[in-house]
Amino acid sequence: MTVTSGLAFVLAGAALSAALPGFGSARGTGMVGEAAAGVITEDGSKFGKVLIMQVLPGTQGLYGFLTAILLLSNAGVLGGGFNDNPISFEKGLAYFCACLPIIIVGYFSAIAQAKAAVGGVGIVAKNPDHSGKGIIFAAMVETYAVLALLISLLAIIQVSGINL
């Protein structure tokens, strides 16, 4: 195994991509879960609706995971390609920077989205006919996680094409 400082940066990028958005999603789904449990104590039939609310802030973790996987496979860590092409310091650092959008936005947008979703749980509790609107409120927040994900993915794929 060819361990270079570049490889360390790649792993740091992948680790943080999986960890921070994942942590954000875990906190987020936890927050919504608490609120949802409160609704269920009153009316168990609303389970389906509040469950959707709960999974909404869960996607950021998924995006982080996706970024990590894509990074590891592009850098050759998955599949072992980096043995033949050791990752230079510069390239590793570039990979790391490519992950920053999803690492940062993934974490904070999950929390923000969870707050919107908690409000959505309130809608389910008081006016279940309009719960769809609550979903949309929370989904508005997710846009920015999607954009960050896209930038991270594009950057990773571009970096893998550069010779550094």
Partner: peptide, 12 residues
Amino acid sequence: INLIGAYVHTNR
């Protein structure tokens, strides 16, 4: 997971 995602974002 992706079914929910697709539903939500198509609506949006």
